[in-house]
């Protein structure tokens, strides 16, 4: 599995609140291919952000990684030995330990949705970017400052040598997101996780930021994990897409297959229900109902109460991952031979 960067196996994250247990992530299997862009799509509350935070082991209380593995296949260029597969299970690491702190910000970096709130307003932009560099490298302050100016220039911030000493409130949303990207790139991460990086931005700015991220990905040979709810953005940048619904990845495939022949009824409905710019005015088919209450998830297939193709078995049987071809998997009973499964389960 040389081309797999991160292998998530049966990841479960639960939130233990006073009102009950919220199963935010309920058994996610996900392989992230090195050098590709994977888009994780889903509505709010589907667990996409929590799942990605788990990759950095920053799931805070009352949330907890209950079970599962997050195998990170690290690459060490500098080490003399073979050491090519120095894999580590991130889920196992102490969230405050030394090892995970070495990974965070250095090998795996993250960009957050709100460019307004993800910088501290008390420190200058340069200060905050340099902090990351000084923490993870042996550069001197002077060298770190030069590197920061270079990075700011690279992400398209005008007059970087002046703006490095500005406080975040002086920058517009788009500029702040660029600075955020500069910070994430400061240690040349192998994986960049972007959690809705363009949602708070205007369309014209969004287009520029997406361009920038794609260019930088090529330059740095990064793997990109892109979390979004915007299918237009997915169509624009993704190589592979994973669709999440209520804590499960219900469909995963390459971007072309997903848009041309989606298999899961949720994916189909989602694609149909989105207003598109290249469309004349016609009635759209909404998905009926709404995302269920997190404390009372439906039995069986999580989508069955809203599914137009649901049948009796969907209420009780939890669908397993079915392969529909190369790199295309789906969790839906329509594609699964239920009788066969019941037979094997009865035998064992």
């Amino acid at each position: 599995m040389a081309d797999t960067l991160i292998d998530v196996k049966d990841l479960r994250i639960h939130f233990f609140t006073d009102e009950g247990v919220v199963r935010a992530v309920g058994g996610v299997d996900l392989a992230i291919t090195r050098g590709k862009t994977l888009a994780l799509v889903g509505e709010s509350g589907c667990g996409k952000s929590v799942a990605c935070r788990a990759l950095l082991n920053i799931v805070h209380r009352p949330g907890k990684i209950v079970s599962g593995e997050i195998i990170f296949h690290r690459m060490f260029h500098q080490s003399s030995g073979s050491g090519s597969d120095a894999s580590v299970d991130i889920a196992e690491l102490n969230p405050k330990g030394r090892e995970i702190r070495d990974i965070r910000g250095k090998e795996i970096a993250m960009i957050f949705q709100e460019p307004m709130t993800s910088f501290s307003s008390m420190y200058t932009i340069g200060n905050q970017i340099m902090e990351n560099i000084l923490l993870h490298t042996n550069l001197s302050k002077q060298e770190a400052r030069i590197l920061t100016i270079e990075l700011l220039d690279k992400v398209g911030i005008p007059k970087p040598s002046r703006l490095i000493d500005e406080y975040p409130f002086r920058l517009s949303g788009g500029m702040r997101q660029r600075a955020m990207i500069a910070m994430a790139l400061s240690c040349s991460p192998t994986l960049l996780i972007a959690d809705e990086p363009t949602t708070a931005l205007d369309v014209t700015t969004q287009a520029n930021i997406l361009d920038l991220m794609q260019n930088l990905q090529k330059q740095y040979e990064m793997t990109l994990l892109f979390i979004t709810h915007d299918l237009g953005v997915v169509a624009e940048i993704a190589d592979e897409v994973a669709v999440m619904y209520l804590g499960k990845i219900i469909e995963k495939s390459d971007v072309f297959t997903l848009f041309n022949s989606p298999a899961h009824p949720y994916t189909q409905a989602l694609l149909k229900s989105v207003p598109k710019i290249a469309m004349t005015r016609e009635a759209l088919d909404p998905i009926k109902g709404m995302v269920p209450n997190p404390y009372s998830r439906p039995s069986g297939c999580p989508f069955h109460p809203r599914c137009p193709k649901a049948f009796a078995a969907c209420k009780t049987i939890v669908p397993k991952t079915t392969s529909l071809g190369l790199h295309h998997t789906v969790q839906c009973l329509l594609y699964e031979d239920v009788t066969e499964r019941q037979a094997t389960e009865a035998l064992s």
Partner: peptide
Amino acid sequence: MSAVPVHDPVLRDSQHRIRL
């Protein structure tokens, strides 16, 4: 208009984008 992502991955490279 041109900055709005088009919901079709096939078109993404063929589209002539105007960047402001």
